[in-house]
Simulated scan of single mutants.
Amino acid sequence: MTRQEGKMRYPIVIERGSDAEAYGVVVPDLPGCFSAGDTFDEAVSNASEAIALWVEDAIDNGQSIPRPSSLDGLRASLEWSGPEWIWGFASVDPTLFDDTSERVNITLPRRVLARLDSRAKDAGETRSGFIAKLALSA
Rank of each mutant, 00 (worst) to 15 (best):
R3Y: 11
G37F: 06
S91C: 06
A114C: 01
S35D: 06
A76C: 04
D122S: 07
S91A: 10
L30Q: 01
M1N: 13
G24W: 12
S48R: 02
P109D: 13
E79F: 05
G24T: 13
D99Q: 15
P28N: 11
A20P: 01
R127L: 00
K121A: 06
F130W: 04
L96D: 03
P83R: 15
Q4S: 10
I14N: 03
V25H: 07
F89K: 11
E125K: 00
R67F: 13
S64K: 03
G73Y: 12
D72E: 09
N105Q: 12
A58S: 14
Q4G: 07
T2Q: 15
D57L: 07
V13M: 06
S91I: 04
K133T: 05
A58N: 14
G88Q: 02
A132Y: 07
D60K: 11
R115I: 02
F34L: 12
W54L: 01
Q4R: 08
D19V: 00
Y23R: 08
S137R: 08
E125C: 00
G82L: 13
L113E: 06
V26M: 09
A120T: 02
R3W: 14
A132W: 10
V26G: 08
T126E: 05
D57R: 12
N46I: 03
V92E: 07
D117E: 03
L136E: 15
W85T: 14
G73I: 04
L96K: 07
S77T: 15
I59A: 07
S64Q: 04
E79K: 14
P66R: 00
C33P: 09
D72A: 05
S35W: 00
A123R: 03
V44G: 03
V112E: 09
S70A: 15
N61R: 07
T107A: 11
W80E: 08
A50M: 04
R119M: 02
G124W: 03
L71V: 10
K133Q: 12
Y23F: 14
I131S: 06
G88M: 04
L30M: 02
G129N: 03
C33M: 04
A52Q: 04
N61Q: 02
E21L: 00
L136M: 09
E79N: 14
F40S: 11
S48L: 05
I86A: 05
V92F: 10
R110K: 03
A138L: 01
G124I: 00
A50G: 06
A123W: 02
G17L: 10
D122L: 01
E5F: 13
N61F: 02
Y23N: 11
L74I: 12
R9W: 14
A22M: 11
R75V: 08
R110L: 01
S77V: 08
I51L: 09
E21P: 08
T95G: 08
D93N: 05
A138D: 11
